[in-house]
Amino acid sequence: MECPRCDSENTRTMVKSPVGDVWEVYVCEDCWYSWRSTETPVVIEKFKLTPAIIATLGVIPPIPPLDL
């Protein structure tokens, strides 16, 4: 199953519906996008991710140096 945001195949089922067997939630382990089987996710171009983009995303908050 391909991630709708970063096209990675590194995806899995996160959870099944607690009541009945009516939906599943999937998650991408590369970009952590998640979606429900009852949705038809369309990630717009502006929000698509690639490993290169992920590597340059801002870090909030910055990680401080370790106290020695």
Binding site: C31, W32, V59, I60, P61
Partner: peptide
């Protein structure tokens, strides 16, 4: 820090993906 977002925010627009806690 791991990818978070986007999220529709209070100024009426999305704030994009960042690496967050």
């Amino acid at each position: 820090r791991v990818v978070e977002g986007p999220f529709g925010e209070f100024p009426g627009s999305y704030s994009g993906s960042r690496l967050q806690c």
